[in-house]
Design a binder for these strands. Structure first.
Lengths: 279, 279
DNA sequence: CGTCTCCTTGACACAGATCAATTAACGTGG
DNA sequence: CCACGTTAATTGATCTGTGTCAAGGAGACG
C-alpha cells in the first residue's frame, strides 16, 4: 500500500477492517504492475482508447491499492490531496458530516468511476471515502497523471471527459424531484452500472444500506423503505433487503425519465409508452 | 451597488442600456483581441498565473462574445458542444425543462465562472444558458484550449482546478438542507461573488428572479419570499425586490455554515475538534 | 440463542407546496 | 404625464409529501 491518502488507521476506529482482516490481503502489491490493457473496465476507464505505447506509460504510473474491507476509509476529511482514484472492484461512498451532525452521502462510486475530483481545487479532501463492500481502487497520482496527460492528447481528453461526466451525472440528482422519482432513477442507475460491469441489470445486489441511499437521495430511511414497498406492491420490483429484482424496468424508467438529461432533446433511448402518470 | 463588471457603466440603469444598446452589438468587436492581461478578473479566471508568453498565446485563442441581453440564450439544449465560456460581465443561468414541464435551474454562473463543463462529455448541451442581466462571456474553443493546455502546464492545472471547483461547489447545494439553510447559503455565496468582483458584499443587486432562485434551491417562489420576509423580520437583511442589504452577514453565515465544506475540518472557526468521532 | 444491526411498518407532525388574492413595479402607448 | 396591461413579488389559507417517533421483525454473528 505504497500510496498515502490512506495512511493506516491511527485512531484504529476502522474496527471492521480488523474484523475481516482475512479479506484485506493486499492484492499482489509490490512489483506487480497493473495491467490496464487486460482490464475489462478499460473501455469505461481513463485509459480507454489509448494507443499501446501510451497505455504502457499510463500503466507505469497507476498503482493498485490494497483491498479495502467494508467500512474502511480510502481517505478522510482533512487529508491532503495528491491522488485521484478509479474504482476497480466494489463500491464506495463519499460522505461528510455537517456541523449539525447530519451525514450527507455526496456520491456513490461504482466500478470504473473516479473518486476525489472535488479535492483537486482545494488540494485537500473535504469528504470521507468509505468502501461499502470489499473494494479495490487504482491510484492515479495527480502530478504524474496530469503531467502524462500533456504528452498524450487522448489521455488528456479522457480526463476532461471523465470530469465532465462527473458533473453531468451530478446535475440529475441535485434537481428538484419527488422521492419516487429519485429512488426510481437511483435504481435505474444502479442497474445500468451493473450491466456496464458485465452483470445482469435486473438482479441488483445493492452495496449500500437504506441509510446510505436515504442520505444520498435526501430522504429518510423510512421513506426509502416505504417507496420500495410501494414499488413492490405495484409490481415494479421485488426487494429483499439489499437484493433487488427489477420486474418491470421499463416502468421504473418511466418514473425516472424526468431525471434523464438525454430525454430532454429527443435522444431518448428507451421509449416507454406514456401510460402511467405518477404524482 | 454596482453589479460586477458594470464598472464602465456608472450612471446606470442596466436594463435600459441593455435594451437600447441592441442585443446584437458586438462589444469592441472585430480585430480587438481580448486582453486577459488587463482584465480585473484574471486572478479568478483560467489565465490566472500564466507567464507573459503563455498569456499571449491564451489571448490569441479566446474570443469575446457579443453582449447578451437579459433573457438571451448563449446556447440551447441540443446545441453541439464546441466551446466553454467564462463569464466576463453579468450573470447567467443554466436550466432545463423536464418532460413533466418543471424547470430546473442547474446553476447560476457569476463573473469569472465557467459555463458548459457538463457538455464536454456528451459533446452536446443538455441545458439552456440564458443571460439574466446584460452579460458578456469569453469563448474558449474547446479544441484549441485543450490543445494549448498541453503546451502550458500551468494552464492545464488551472483548467483542472476550474472543473474541480465546479464539482466542489455543486456538492453543497445538492445536499439535504432546510430551505432556510439553502437560502442563507445562497445569499452568502452571492455576497462573496460580489466581493470577489470588487463590489460591496452587503449590498446585493440580485440578477435573478425569485422564481429562478426557487428553481435553483428546489423551493417554491412563495417559500423564497416568505423566508426572505422571515430573515428581514429577524434583522438579518433588508429585501426590496432584487435589492438585498445584508444587515447581519455573520448571522446569515451562521445559518449557512452547515453547508460550507470548509467548516468540516476546522479551517473555519467553530468546530471544537473532538478528534475523530465517526458515528 | 441472545444480541446487534438493519430493515420495515404504523401513527402522527411539520416544513414546504399549492391555491388564491393582493400589491407593487415596469413598460407601453396615448 | 397619466391610464393601462403585464409580470414579479408578497401574503394568507390550506393541503400534503416526507420526516419523525415508536414499535416490531428478520437476518447475521458470536
Amino acid at each position: 500500500m505504497p500510496w498515502p491518502g490512506k495512511k493506516d488507521n491511527p485512531a484504529g476506529n476502522d474496527a471492521k477492517s480488523a474484523q475481516s482482516a482475512g479479506a484485506a490481503t493486499p492484492i499482489k502489491a509490490g512489483p506487480a504492475r497493473p495491467r490496464c490493457g487486460t482490464c475489462i473496465l478499460r473501455p469505461h476507464c481513463l485509459p480507454a482508447g489509448l494507443a499501446p505505447e501510451a497505455l504502457r506509460k499510463f500503466e507505469n504510473i497507476v498503482q493498485h491499492s490494497a483491498n479495502l474491507a467494508p467500512g474502511e476509509h480510502l481517505f478522510r476529511v482533512g487529508d491532503k490531496f495528491h491522488s485521484l482514484y478509479a474504482v476497480r472492484t466494489g463500491c464506495l461512498k463519499t460522505c461528510a458530516v455537517d456541523p449539525n451532525g447530519r451525514e450527507h452521502v455526496i456520491n456513490f462510486h461504482f466500478v470504473g468511476e473516479l473518486i476525489g475530483i472535488d479535492a483537486i481545487f482545494p488540494e485537500q479532501h473535504f469528504s470521507d471515502a468509505i468502501a461499502l463492500v470489499e473494494s479495490s481502487v487504482c491510484h492515479l497520482p495527480y502530478r504524474a497523471i496530469s503531467q502524462l496527460a500533456r504528452e498524450i492528447p487522448e489521455l488528456q481528453l479522457q480526463i476532461l471527459r471523465g470530469l465532465s461526466r462527473h458533473v453531468f451525472s451530478m446535475t440529475s440528482i441535485s434537481g428538484d424531484f419527488t422521492a419516487e422519482e429519485r429512488l426510481a432513477a437511483f435504481l435505474v442507475m444502479v442497474g445500468a452500472r451493473h450491466r456496464l460491469a458485465g452483470g445482469a441489470s435486473t438482479e441488483l445486489q445493492l452495496a449500500m444500506s437504506r441509510q446510505d441511499i436515504a442520505n444520498y437521495l435526501r430522504l429518510a430511511t423510512e421513506t426509502v423503505s416505504r417507496i420500495l414497498a410501494r414499488f413492490q406492491k405495484s409490481g415494479l420490483l421485488r426487494a429483499n433487503r439489499r437484493q433487488i429484482t427489477l420486474l418491470n424496468p421499463e416502468g421504473l424508467y418511466a418514473i425516472a425519465e424526468c431525471m434523464n438529461p438525454y430525454s430532454r432533446c429527443g435522444i431518448n433511448r428507451h421509449r416507454p409508452e406514456s401510460g402511467t402518470t405518477h404524482r
